[in-house]
Design a protein around this nucleic acid. Sequence first.
DNA 1: CCACACTATGTCTGAAGTGACATAGTCGAT
DNA 2: ATCGACTATGTCACTTCAGACATAGTGTGG
Lengths: 180, 180
Amino acid sequence: MTSTLGFAVLAVLARGDRTGYDIAAAMRRPIGFFWTAGHSQIHAELQKLLAAGLVGYEAEHGPGPQDKKVYHLTDEGSAELRAWVTRPPKERPERDELVLKTYAAWLAEAGLVRRMFADQLAAHEARLAEYEREEAAFGGPPSFGDPRFGNYATLRCGLGYERHRAEWCRWMIDQLGDGS
Amino acid sequence: MTSTLGFAVLAVLARGDRTGYDIAAAMRRPIGFFWTAGHSQIHAELQKLLAAGLVGYEAEHGPGPQDKKVYHLTDEGSAELRAWVTRPPKERPERDELVLKTYAAWLAEAGLVRRMFADQLAAHEARLAEYEREEAAFGGPPSFGDPRFGNYATLRCGLGYERHRAEWCRWMIDQLGDGS
DNA sequence: CCACACTATGTCTGAAGTGACATAGTCGAT
DNA sequence: ATCGACTATGTCACTTCAGACATAGTGTGG
């Protein structure tokens, strides 16, 4: 009954023990590129995982009204995660606002549409440059079995995505004329 | 205050008057590729749009306990839609289960991961072939201003996406060795 | 010494989305 | 004739998610 968010949390914990706060930070970067959650969602999820016996924690004195809780995977949590990894992902419905706007773009002024795509293109190119810098930091793909393989493989996916997206934006801008 | 779903409905209605049922059908194909909604959501949304004065309807006798309602855009709805089209889309968080699994793939057996990616690759290739057939049915891009421009441009996006995705799957399979 | 950023936990409200349930006419095939 | 698929509208319960609110210790810089 564990949700995908639950597995995302387990996947973070598989790389080392962390507090809910740390997990939330990971959900912004780098995992935020493919799964996001606010800290409120994470604390709630941790309580579910705890009730299911998939994680445990050790309390330490820390800031705030409550104790700081350092969570770790239980053997059962680790087994569940391993089993989940290779189960075929159920496909989620795509929801892409830019593509929806494109579907209705024929109603608008070409110049305004061109500007919108130019902005999108700039954003994609900036992200692409960032990803390329990150990729250079790896000296080629880490071996499978190394946790860093996960980071590298997802980065490759992001790289391909940004390139595809940028190319589509360029094609759109092309279609809309030079607008000089 | 209109939601993105509301604009999706308006975008369908901009191409011709339809019943809620017809809109729901459009939300499966072709719009379902980039925005989906169940019929229950659409009926609820139509009531909101009606209250906001963005759509109207004419009732006809039809099957079922209620009258059949053929919805159309009002002038105000049309104006709102046009204004929305070129407003920069707010970015939604990505949620991609396959990429999340990839992040945790180092925990699993390479053979099982390879099989999962092979299945994904097959699905992408099948969709790609379908899109290519659809693209061939257009004899090149329709001109901007033609509603079919929206169909073509979104198809181009889908084509690029499937290619990027298939390529990434192939790269992953490559990384996982020949597994003979 | 004080302000501010960061660490750290949690609750609550409301919106969005999913899937089941409910009803009923029409039309084609067996 | 009857059965099932399709047209057509809607409600309800449940889950997920986003964002605001609430609390409080620690460490850094001015």
